[in-house]
């Protein structure tokens, strides 16, 4: 049987999920530091997408809400704004997660472009970020960097999760 599907309970990988969320927030914080790298994808969102597709018995709305609050505190935006964005995107993922799981990693990366584009679009409408002409290009190109980031992230997490099950 393919190793693409991992039958895993949330309780089995709770710590791994928390660590990845911590890592996601740390990476997003690093990218928002001096000379922010606008091409870097939102790692927190990508980790959330990955785990929402893995644990079919959970809705992940609470995770999306809490992570959104942290992102709001990080970027200094209105509390709840990022939560709303993450919940909307998680909801779309929940509707299609069975289909998403059946894709290969590369196909998934293409789907993730859509989710990240939705994230950028809603952020643009809600926060009106101040962007010069170069930054505008980087801002809208950001979703395409998931073509590189998603396979690395998904394959490493799959490898770690499989080790966790066999351990």
């Amino acid at each position: 049987m393919t190793d693409r599907f991992i039958d895993l309970e949330f309780s089995q990988a709770r710590w791994l999920v928390l660590i990845t969320y911590f890592l996601g927030l740390t990476l997003d914080t690093m990218m928002s530091m001096q000379d922010a790298n606008l091409l870097a994808p939102s790692f927190t969102l990508m980790f959330l997408m990955y785990w929402s597709a893995q644990f079919l018995k959970n809705t992940h709305f609470l995770s999306a809400f809490l992570l959104g609050l942290f992102l709001d505190a990080l970027y200094g935006t209105t509390l709840g704004a990022h939560s709303l964005i993450l919940i909307v995107i998680t909801f779309i993922m929940l509707r299609y997660r069975l289909l998403f799981r059946s894709h290969s990693v590369l196909q998934q990366a293409f789907v993730i472009i859509f989710y990240l584009m939705a994230y950028q679009f809603i952020s643009y409408v809600m926060f009106s970020p101040t962007l010069d002409s170069d930054q505008k290009i980087e801002y809208w190109l950001m979703p395409f960097t998931s073509l590189i980031a998603w396979p690395i992230l998904a394959l490493s997490l799959r490898w770690v999760t499989q080790r966790l099950i066999t351990a």
Partner: peptide
């Protein structure tokens, strides 16, 4: 201890 300069905020 931390400097943030992104399109959403500068602090």
């Amino acid at each position: 201890t931390f400097f943030s300069s992104n399109p959403l905020s500068q602090f």
